[in-house]
């Protein structure tokens, strides 16, 4: 298993646990009448689960198992793939921090961080597509 795949899948596992713990917190909010401000964690919960866990796990397995690009570059441009990993996770972490803070304070600083997080995640997605596209081909 390539090094990047191990990083992607282990990071995905961390998001899996973290997102479901946030799910517990959201359920506890309803059950015990905790602060309504915790509702701002709902989109964070969903995106950590679906992007941090499911999508990142897919990225890891696809990088490892999909047909090889060439003999010289079996998994495509590895530098681009590492940049995708960094961008995706920086974007996710910044979002997890800034989305609830933006909801709570509406301070311009957190709005700016939220925009940066959106752009990082988006660019990670495009980097993944760019690197995988030519590996998806008929034998």
């Amino acid at each position: 298993m390539p090094t990047l795949t191990r990083w992607l899948i282990k990071t995905a596992l961390v998001y899996f646990v973290a997102s479901l713990l946030i799910g517990v917190l959201l359920a506890a909010r309803d059950a015990f009448g905790l602060s309504p401000a915790l509702a701002a964690l709902m989109p964070v919960y969903f995106h950590l689960l679906m992007v941090g866990w499911v999508t990142q796990l897919i990225f890891g397995v696809a990088f490892w198992m999909f047909p090889r690009y060439s003999k010289e570059m079996p998994r495509g441009r590895e530098g681009l793939a590492w940049a995708m990993y960094a961008s995706l996770n920086a974007g996710l972490l910044l979002r997890a921090l800034s989305e609830p803070m933006h909801a709570a304070t509406t301070a311009p600083f957190w709005a700016g961080v939220l925009v940066v997080s959106a752009l990082l995640k988006w660019s990670a997605g495009l980097m993944f597509v760019a690197n995988m596209w030519k590996r998806i081909r008929e034998k």
Partner: peptide, 11 residues
């Protein structure tokens, strides 16, 4: 891309 646009809109 749609998600990015909506998140930027939120901010």
């Amino acid at each position: 891309t749609l998600g990015c646009l909506m998140l930027v809109e939120k901010a």
